[in-house]
């Protein structure tokens, strides 16, 4: 059997370099690339087609949730393991919905990381115990037919969610247009649609919303 090819996506370079060292000490892993933000993660995943992407949630430019959604869509064979400090069941549910099959907290030991990568690679799911404890009751509620009310957030398109993060990070329409290779007018239209769909009326409200949803860090 060949090596498990891993892409590491985290904005903390030291952590990425250390994880690479730990994983490469085990002959069953090969770290094929690293990414420092979500956009780079999507690009590198598409170019390298890794078996597993180990992904942080809080990353600049494009967060781990959107990057997961995009990678899961374009590379159905690539497994995504979330590695985060966020012990938050809503975030976990959302990102599992987006296509991740593992959710591991950074408080884990490196042996647990290795076990989690192997599990998602095999096609199994892996959840940190403290996250499973929070997610399972939600699932049971769902299974019993108590479905939570539909969130307005899911009305947004992938592009709108991407632009929402960039606005919240303080980029201007012009800068966003340049980053996404679209016109400033298109950015403006997206911005208006985001505000309308989420019923927000100022950038300050939008930033607060983005922090509450875990799209950016407060």
């Amino acid at each position: 059997m060949g090596k498990i090819r891993v892409l590491l996506a985290d904005d903390h370079t030291i952590l990425r370099q250390g994880l690479r060292k730990i994983l490469e000490a085990d002959p069953s892993f090969e770290v094929v690339g690293e990414a420092g933000d979500g956009r780079e993660a999507v690009k590198k995943a598409e170019a390298l087609k890794p078996d597993v992407v180990v992904m942080d949630i809080s990353m600049p430019i494009l967060n781990g949730i959107e990057a997961t959604r995009q990678i899961a869509k374009s590379l159905p064979k690539t497994k995504i393991l979330i590695l985060t400090v966020h012990e938050n069941d809503q975030l976990a549910t959302e990102i599992l919905n987006a296509g991740a099959t593992g959710y591991l907290l950074k408080d884990a030991a490196s042996e647990e990381l290795i076990a989690a990568i192997r599990a998602v690679y095999r096609g199994d799911s892996y959840l940190s115990p403290s996250i499973a404890k929070r997610v399972i009751p939600q699932y049971l509620d769902f299974a019993r037919g108590k479905v939570p009310p539909e969130e307005k957030f899911s009305d947004l398109t992938a592009r709108e969610r991407e632009i929402l993060q960039l606005i919240a990070e303080g980029y201007s329409n012009k800068e966003i247009a340049q980053m996404l290779y679209i016109s400033e007018k298109t950015v403006k239209t997206h911005r208006e649609n985001i505000m309308r769909k989420l019923d927000l009326h100022s950038v300050a409200e939008l930033v607060r919303y983005a922090i509450r949803r875990g799209i950016i860090q407060g």
């Binding site: 030291i14 952590l15 250390g18 994880l19 060292k21 400090v85 907290l105 950074k106 884990a108 490196s110």
Partner: peptide, 17 residues
Amino acid sequence: DAHQLWRHVLKCLIEGF
């Protein structure tokens, strides 16, 4: 560090220096 993985990674890197 509050996170075990960070501690592992740092130990591994620093001892590697």
